[in-house]
Design a binder for these strands. Sequence first.
DNA 1: TAGTTGTATAACTAAATAGTTATATAACGT
DNA 2: ACGTTATATAACTATTTAGTTATACAACTA
Lengths: 124, 124
Amino acid sequence: MLITSPHLDAAFAALADPTRRAIVARLALGEATVMELAQPFDMSQPAISKHLKVLEIAGLISRSRDAQRRPCRLEPQVLADASGWLDHYRDVWERNFRRLDTLLDEMKRQEKKSSVPRRRAKKK
Amino acid sequence: MLITSPHLDAAFAALADPTRRAIVARLALGEATVMELAQPFDMSQPAISKHLKVLEIAGLISRSRDAQRRPCRLEPQVLADASGWLDHYRDVWERNFRRLDTLLDEMKRQEKKSSVPRRRAKKK
DNA sequence: TAGTTGTATAACTAAATAGTTATATAACGT
DNA sequence: ACGTTATATAACTATTTAGTTATACAACTA
């Protein structure tokens, strides 16, 4: 979890671009060729090829061969890794939040038990 | 889920840097000042301040004031949003995978029922 | 008030990124 | 073999990024 850094660098960087996230979203529905992936975008074909290379290097997609075509498929493992990293630290945060929260509760309860008598003592 | 793009651009870009992920990891344990966050890194203080600004703009952290200090705290919502995006498309992929998988199974079953008779017919 | 501590900003540089057009490669159909 | 289709690569440009040092600002302490 902690030392998967170089891997996650590429994954998060790849996902930071809206065009690439749209490609990932499209590929979640199934394989597609470069032409098919390029079609929705107002962008040159080489630009799409470059985005696909970024996704491939990040391990988010893989490509096979079908005649002249290079169908792309989503590789969900890296999505899972990125999600795992996020969830891990959300979880750590939540545990610490709860810990502090109960600590504050206990301090309040201590106050009720101890500060009232203290005031009484002062009054006396 | 689909149109939260500009938001996710900044979040994923912020998380693409290992220094910033380390800062997020540290803040999951609780608040910390800029000095405390900078200490583990072989990097100038202004560099850390810039990383913190990137994280703040992405909505991943927030900062308060304590005398000269600017304690940083993690804001887990954006982590949750990013994780949600990933999980959503993993889920879409998985559903489509299963759908294709059962489709293939059905096709195989059809083959058993229909192609064997066809072969018999040919032989005859 | 003067010095100190904690943090931010300015100005700069080197490297990386996202796009372009033009061209090359690869496999098909005729 | 020849033109066509699908994709990749090269060369270039503009923008962004991650770092630097020097400096400014803000709030404390003596």
